[in-house]
Simulated assay, not measured.
Amino acid sequence: MTGVELPLFPLAAVLFPGGTLDLRIFEPRYLDLVRDCARQDRAFGVCLILAGTEAGAGAVPAAIGTLARIVDFHTLPDGLLGIRVRGGGRFHIGATRVRDNGLVLGDARLWPDEPTLPVPPEYGLLATLLERLLERIGGEMARVARRCYDDASWVGFRLAEQLPFTPGEQQQLLQLTDPLERLAWLTRELPRFQDG
């Protein structure tokens, strides 16, 4: 696990590896973060907020988060900056410090990528469910290569972000390091979302 200093963007949402998030940027500390990351072509860290709020005083971020790389900029209808980020690898934050502008920096240990494992037959229903769900939603994810549905990590992360789990449950799924354990967790919880 490699160490790196990361600017952190605590959110009331979880970003998963390979997923995307649209963010509305208006606080000076985050405008600075976006400017610096865009200029240096570097990622920042997205962490779930454990205490506090997204705007204003510093929030307490979860220790495990996801690298975020900016993939698009746009102006929102209200004139503010909008960005789209894509999730990369995961990391664990050790010590944190706060800059004068309120931006939190963390000493991060980068986690290795999960092994690429095929979706076992007993979890095949999850891949089928995900494919139907993404077809219904449309957009970029609906056009992914067929081989993605054979990747246990990809299927697990996409279901974790698409099903209506609480942010705390999504954080649990992010923190699991075994893609098959994540699929087992999803299988156990799936009955909650079936029509009664």
Score class of each variant (00 low, 15 high):
A145W: 03
G82S: 10
A95I: 09
T187H: 11
D150H: 14
Y30P: 00
D22H: 12
M1T: 14
V144Q: 00
E135C: 01
F16D: 01
Q194D: 03
D178A: 08
R86A: 15
Q40V: 03
L80N: 13
F157R: 13
G19Y: 03
I70P: 03
D22F: 06
L11Y: 11
E135H: 03
L129Y: 13
F26G: 06
L8G: 03
Q175N: 07
L50W: 07
L23I: 11
L48G: 04
R109D: 11
W185H: 10
P77R: 10
L105M: 15
D107P: 02
L11Q: 12
A68W: 08
Y30I: 01
D195W: 07
P77K: 12
G79M: 12
T53E: 14
Q162F: 07
P61A: 07
L80I: 04
V98Q: 13
G56C: 05
E27D: 11
T177K: 02
R29S: 06
R146F: 12
L173Y: 00
L81H: 06
D113K: 08
A184S: 12
G52A: 09
I25V: 15
H74I: 02
V60Q: 12
I83E: 09
L176Y: 00
M1I: 09
E135I: 00
L103D: 01
P118H: 06
D178L: 09
R42M: 13
R192M: 07
R24N: 12
P164T: 09
M141Q: 13
V14E: 06
I70Y: 12
I137E: 15
L180S: 08
C47P: 02
R158L: 01
D178G: 05
D100F: 05
M141L: 15
R35N: 13
R147Q: 14
L163E: 03
L23C: 07
D151F: 03
V60L: 15
P164A: 09
N101P: 05
G139S: 12
G18T: 08
E161G: 05
A38E: 08
E5C: 05
V144S: 00
F157H: 15
G45L: 04
F157N: 09
G18A: 14
M141F: 02
L67W: 02
A55Q: 13
P164S: 10
A12Q: 15
A43Q: 07
Y123I: 03
G139C: 11
Q171D: 09
E181T: 14
V104H: 02
C47D: 06
L163V: 05
R99K: 13
D178P: 08
G79C: 09
A57H: 04
R24C: 05
W185T: 06
E161H: 11
C37Y: 12
